[in-house]
Design a protein around this nucleic acid. Structure first.
Length: 437
RNA sequence: GCGACCGUAGCUCAGUCGGUUAGAGCACCAGAUUGUGGAUCUGGGUGUCGCGGGUUCGAUCCCCGUCGGUCGCCCCA
């Protein structure tokens, strides 16, 4: 038994696992860059107040927080949104709009680990600031889709559930509910999928029995699956705010359809997201099988930058977690074999030959080729096995016979063919052979 | 924070109705093998049976606790 183990919920990444992680990061990064997002990074430790200001006092329960040696109350970051809002808020005056930033970073939450959830995990975060129109929402949802399809996932593997907090608020207001009742009812709606009718208990507890007619309308709203149904439901209600939102929905869905992404997106007003700061469209990506927790989530948060001390900047963003993403890719067989192969393996006849080879090895490496050779004297047979296991395409053979003739043997390991090279042509020959196919 | 299940080698697991020195496959290491291929053969166990305590003549096995894992609840930014 090891004397020390990693802490609960903290994963280790031995080379194979790190290769997988880097593969995921590489495709996320590539997707973001093609959408014109620029990468940033930020501190891992922040003031505890930053998170309390955004999420309330209870959040401390879920944080790795402590008092530093200067007496400051601090926390390991549990998410990127407050930080990026602060960063963008501070520089907003000098940043060209729209502001499109992304990051890939590790986060920490003091929670019990379970399937798809660890205490330390990575997230891809993308946020767009300074654009209030649905064009920004389209951009983010399209990027989210790209971040998943880049791996070979299709509409049969995942979908994006699209909802709208503003729409809910305006609708419930139109049905005669005041703001406190709207807020509590939204909490119930958020839990309805899991708890069913029991979800409304929180409302009953706070305000007494829910009017059956009202409840019926809420349940009917949750059933809406298309823009047409939404329009039909809202038409009799009317009102400028609701009609405005309906127009936004139309533009959003039209835009996504024009991008060819309609097949990934479903109208689903059951998604509310617990966060009070969301102000408009909200969305979450799920696997089609319904076996995993959310793959990604995001939405519009138009007032958070101001709340954290910056200018009033409209914003929309989302995050993808690496844990659920990894589970999904694994389940679909979409994690490729990520082998780290050498370019050249150098077979050494003996100590004299080793010295003779070192100059070439160094030159090849300086030229960017991955070159391996046995660190200890090894029989030729073993060296050829090692050459194969290294994945190298070429072997350079430094034997006594060859050196006596002023040559080195270049072996194509796959083709099993060999030829002699004059000593001074090793680098050029390797370059030509590897470049040639 | 709560609950259920689980914990034997690097991995997957066997095992002991409580009994000598804890096993297999894979992986790994060495040799056969000092001039050519993933093979084969030989050898190597690499282990605090998670940890601590209890019961017992004797515990990897039974009991309690604890730590860790998995899954779920709470929460989910």
């Amino acid at each position: 038994m090891p004397l020390f183990q990693s802490l609960p919920g903290f994963r280790e990444f031995p080379p194979e696992a790190l290769a997988r992680r880097n593969h995921i990061f590489r495709l996320w990064r590539q997707a973001a860059l093609t959408f014109g997002f620029v990468e940033y990074d930020a501190p891992v430790v922040e003031s505890l107040e930053l998170y309390k200001a955004k999420s309330g006092e209870e959040i401390e329960q879920q944080l790795f927080s402590f008092t530093d040696k200067g007496g400051r109350e601090v926390a390991l970051r549990p998410e990127m949104t407050p930080t990026v809002c602060r960063m963008v808020g501070a520089k907003a005056g000098s940043l060209k709009r729209p502001i499109k930033w992304f990051s890939i970073a590790e986060f920490y939450r003091y929670e019990r680990a379970q399937k798809g959830r660890e205490r330390a995990f990575f997230q891809f975060n993308a946020d767009l600031f300074g654009e209030a129109g649905v064009e920004a929402d389209i951009e983010l949802i399209a990027l989210l889709v790209q971040c998943l399809t880049a791996f070979g996932l299709t509409e049969r593997d995942f979908f994006v559930r699209l909802s709208d907090r503003d729409l809910w608020c305006y609708y419930l207001e139109a049905l005669g509910l005041d703001e406190p009742r709207v807020r509590v009812l939204l909490t119930a709606i958020d839990k309805h999928e899991k708890l069913g009718d029991g979800a409304f208990q929180v409302f009953t507890d706070a305000f007494g029995p829910l009017d059956p007619a009202l409840k019926g309308k809420v349940l009917a709203f949750l059933q809406i699956k298309s823009l047409e149904q939404l329009a039909a439901t809202l038409a009799p209600v009317g009102g400028g705010k609701l009609m405005g939102r309906l127009a936004d929905w139309r533009r959003l869905l039209d835009g996504l359809a024009a991008m060819g992404l309609a097949r990934f997106v479903e109208v689903d007003l059951g998604v509310v997201r617990g966060l009070a700061y969301y102000t408009g469209f909200v969305f979450e990506a799920f696997d089609r099988q319904g076996e995993l927790r959310a793959i990604a989530g995001g939405g519009r948060y138009n007032h958070l930058v101001a709340k954290l001390g910056g200018p009033d900047l409209p914003a929309v963003g989302f995050a993808i977690g690496d844990v659920t993403m990894g589970l999904l890719l694994e389940a679909r067989g979409l994690i490729p074999a990520l082998v780290q192969a050498a370019d050249v393996y150098t077979v050494l006849g003996g100590e004299e030959e080793r010295k003779a080879a070192f100059g070439d090895i160094q030159a090849l490496r300086a030229a960017g080729y991955r070159v391996e050779y046995p660190l200890r004297p090894l029989a030729f047979g073993k060296q050829f096995k090692a050459a194969l296991e290294s994945g190298a395409r070429l072997a350079l053979i430094y034997g006594g016979d060859e050196l006596a003739r002023g040559v080195v043997k270049l072996r194509d390991l796959a083709g099993r063919s060999e030829r002699d090279l004059p000593r001074d042509q090793v680098l050029a020959a390797v370059r030509d052979t590897l470049a040639g196919g």
